[in-house]
C-alpha cells in the first residue's frame, strides 16, 4: 500500500514559520519541551541554551519526601539508547518549591512540574501543593515510572488505577493549570489507558515513558543495573512512541498529546506532530547533546520551511489523512 505524498507548496523562509502552540490555554513559543528526568529542574541546562526560549521545561518527577534513588550502577548504554534505574532520586517537594521552582519561574521559563507518588494520597498532596505554587504552567502526573520496587505500583499499567490517581488529584489543581498524565507503552492497549485518564479529568497525556528492559554484564554474567531492570529510552524507542501517539490520536481525536521518545532531530519531532502530537519533549538525547532541545526547535523550523509549511496546525495529524 502506498500513499500520495503530502504537498504543502514550495519552500518558504524559516522566519515565516509560526511554531507557537496553544496547549490547553497555555501559550508556548514553540512545541519543544524537555522530558521529565532528563533536565533536572532546568538550571544545569541554562548554561547551554536559554531555558526561557524553549517551549517549556518539564522537571524531574518530584515526590513528597527526599528520595535517595537506587543503588549504582544506574545506567547502561544500549544500541541507540540507554537503560536507567535511577529510582526517582530527588529533594522532595519542600526543597523543590523553596529552591528549584522559583528559579525556573524567575528565569522566565514555562515550568511543567512532574509529580510522582507511591500511592494516590501522595499525588493528591503533591497536586495540592504544586497547584498552589506561583508560576506553574502545567502539571505532568507521572503514573508510569518503571523504577519502583513493585510493578503493581505502576498505576499506568492498569486503566482503573490510572483513573483513580487522576480523578483524586485533578480537583486539587486549579482549572487553568492543565494536567497531563504520563503513560507507559508497556500495556496491551495504550489508547484505553489514555481514555481512562481523560475520563478522570486529565487535560491530556504524555506518551511515552520508558519501556521496561534488562541487560547483562559480560564480566559478571549478571544484570548490569543495580536495580536489575531499567527504563529503556533514546532513539531506539522512537518508533514505539510514534506508534503510541498515533493509536491514541486515532482513538481520541481531540485529546491533547505530548509526544516523547527518542527525539534527536527536527524531523523526529515532526514525526510526532504528523502522528498527532500537540507538542513534543526531548529527553535522553540531552545527555548526548545538552544543546539538543533548542537545536530541535531550529531544525523543526527548517523542516517545515523547506516544505512550505507555515504552522504546526497545518501538519498536525496529517499522517492520518
Amino acid at each position: 500500500m502506498s500513499y500520495a505524498p503530502h504537498d504543502f507548496g514550495g519552500p518558504i523562509s524559516p522566519d515565516e514559520v509560526d511554531l507557537s502552540v496553544d496547549l490547553c490555554g497555555v501559550a508556548l513559543p514553540n512545541p519543544v519541551m524537555t522530558a521529565s528526568g532528563c533536565a533536572a529542574a532546568g538550571r544545569e541546562l541554562d548554561q547551554f541554551f536559554d531555558v526561557a526560549e524553549l517551549g517549556a521545561i518539564v522537571t524531574k518527577s518530584i515526590m513528597l519526601n527526599p528520595r535517595s534513588g537506587r543503588a549504582t550502577p544506574r545506567m547502561a548504554e544500549t544500541p541507540s539508547g540507554m537503560l536507567n534505574s535511577i529510582g526517582l532520586q530527588g529533594p522532595g517537594i519542600d526543597a523543590f518549591l523553596a529552591r528549584d521552582l522559583p528559579w525556573l519561574v524567575q528565569r522566565g521559563a514555562r515550568a511543567v512540574v512532574s509529580i510522582a507518588g507511591d500511592k494516590p494520597a501522595d499525588y493528591v498532596e503533591l497536586a495540592r501543593r504544586v497547584g498552589q505554587a506561583p508560576g506553574v504552567a502545567a502539571i505532568e502526573v507521572n503514573i508510569s515510572c518503571p523504577n519502583v520496587e513493585n510493578r503493581g505500583l505502576v498505576f499506568a499499567c492498569d486503566a482503573e488505577s490510572s483513573y483513580r490517581v487522576i480523578e483524586e488529584c485533578r480537583p486539587h489543581i486549579p482549572d487553568d493549570i492543565p494536567v497531563f498524565a504520563k503513560l507507559t507503552p508497556d500495556v496491551t492497549d495504550i489508547a484505553t489507558i489514555a481514555g481512562a485518564v481523560a475520563d478522570a479529568g486529565a487535560d491530556g497525556v504524555t506518551v511515552i515513558n520508558t519501556l521496561l528492559g534488562l541487560t547483562m554484564d559480560p564480566d559478571t554474567l549478571r544484570p548490569r543495573l543495580g536495580g536489575v531492570t531499567g527504563g529503556l529510552s533514546g532513539p531506539a524507542v522512537r518508533p514505539v512512541a510514534v506508534r503510541a501517539v498515533w493509536q491514541i490520536r486515532k482513538a481520541l481525536p481531540d485529546l491533547p498529546i505530548l509526544g516523547v521518545g527518542g527525539i534527536r532531530t527536527g524531523f523526529d519531532a515532526l514525526e510526532f506532530v504528523l502522528a498527532g502530537a500537540d507538542a513534543v519533549q526531548v529527553g535522553t538525547v540531552i545527555f548526548n547533546d545538552p544543546g539538543a532541545p533548542m537545536r530541535v526547535v531550529r531544525e523543526l523550523r527548517d523542516e517545515l520551511a523547506v516544505r512550505g509549511i507555515r504552522s504546526l496546525d497545518t501538519v498536525r495529524n496529517a499522517a492520518h489523512g
Partner: peptide, 12 residues
C-alpha cells in the same frame, strides 16, 4: 551519562 548534572547516574 551526561557529565553536566542532569541524569543522576554518577552518584555515590
Amino acid at each position: 551519562a551526561c557529565g553536566i548534572g542532569v541524569c543522576m547516574t554518577c552518584v555515590l
